[in-house]
């Protein structure tokens, strides 16, 4: 009976998730047909090559893959790190009871509401050789050329756009912290810094971790921002998604699928490790009463998380 009831969900999931993944794995085992030197026509059929497309990343042709791999990792780590810090700061500001709070909240969230492609175009103008960025800094940096400056441009634009997302999730976390905890701390004589480190941060951690996880997964498949802001085919900012798109647009669906599958595995691995290491906070942290347990070491936390999950299940 239970199987029957969830079967529509399973079918939909199978159609939109399992099938595309398997289809990508299948097509990653083929390569492009060559041109017959005699007739000049492309030979029919796509030759089966097994795992050659995956193996090729370890040979000479893999240079472009590894470059894209490190770019993806570097852009992800740096931008998510900055987003977390700035997003947290934004959330704290949005949380303050002050005049014009609604206005502040709205203005902080505007970047998040702009489609990435549009914001990439905006930043492209800003980073033009005669754009606002150079005028304000008094520099003559050619931001969109190869080199570290283009990576910096991507990171700045990415952080500008997605820090509000982190801010929004953290704000939700902040709003469920009871004021009584703060009052008690104030009575005990804790200053604002102490209150932040010992109350706010531990209590908002579950929400913060969810935000970071979402951002990690999202940033790992970054495509539109570097593609539009810096341009296709620039080594400094070519990500794995851009590499796969380039292969696909050159009608090489085998290698394109292989890169996509590798990206999928990479994202999966990161998500898995993240949840394994910090899973207690993600799955059960919110159930824990009070904030005093924030300092517990992770193995015990995980056990606690497991228990509270059971509680949820039986409840």
């Amino acid at each position: 009976m239970a199987t029957l009831l969830i079967s529509p969900t399973l079918i939909v999931l199978g159609l939109v998730i399992v099938y595309p993944v398997l289809a990508a794995v299948y097509s990653s085992m083929f390569t492009v047909p060559g041109v017959d030197p005699r007739t000049g026509f492309v030979e029919g059929g796509e030759p089966f090559v097994g795992l050659d497309n995956f193996a090729s990343i370890f040979t000479g042709a893999g240079g472009r893959f590894w470059n894209a791999f490190w770019n993806t990792s570097f852009l992800t780590v740096t931008s998510v790190l900055l987003e977390t810090v700035i997003g947290l700061a934004m959330a704290l500001i949005m949380h303050q009871a002050m005049r014009g709070r609604a206005w502040v909240r709205a203005s902080i969230l505007v970047p998040w509401a702009i489609p990435t492609a549009i914001s990439a175009l905006l930043w492209r103008w800003i980073f033009d050789s005669e754009g606002i960025a150079n005028t304000m800094l008094g520099t003559k940096v050619l931001w969109t050329t190869e080199g570290f400056q283009s990576q910096a441009a991507v990171i700045i634009a990415e952080v500008w756009k997605t820090a509000p997302f982190v801010g929004l999730l953290v704000l939700a976390g902040l709003q469920i912290i009871s004021q009584e905890v703060y009052e008690a701390a104030r009575v005990d004589g804790a200053g604002p810094v102490r209150r932040f480190w010992n109350i706010t941060l531990p209590l908002v951690k579950p929400a913060l971790l969810v935000a970071v996880l979402f951002r990690l997964l999202d940033a790992l498949r970054m495509f539109d921002l570097p593609y539009i802001l810096i341009g296709a085919g620039k080594e400094s900012v070519e990500t794995l998604s851009m590499l796969a798109q380039d292969e696909a647009s050159n009608v090489r669906f085998g290698p394109a699928s292989a890169y996509s599958v590798l990206l999928f595995l990479y994202v999966f691995l990161i998500a898995f490790t993240f949840i394994k290491l910090l899973g207690a906070d993600l799955l059960g942290g919110r159930d824990e009463p009070g904030g005093k347990k924030g300092g517990r070491k992770s193995p015990r936390r995980q056990a606690g998380g497991g228990r509270s999950r059971q509680k949820e299940a039986t409840a």
Binding site: G40, V42, T145, E146, G233, E235, D246, S249, N250, V251
Partner: peptide
């Protein structure tokens, strides 16, 4: 070239590297 997309990418890579002094 039949694979024009690849040819033009290769040309752009080479020319850009030379023009920027890389």
């Amino acid at each position: 070239v039949v694979q024009y997309g690849d040819a033009t990418t290769a040309i752009q890579d080479a020319a850009y590297a030379a023009l920027t002094g890389k």
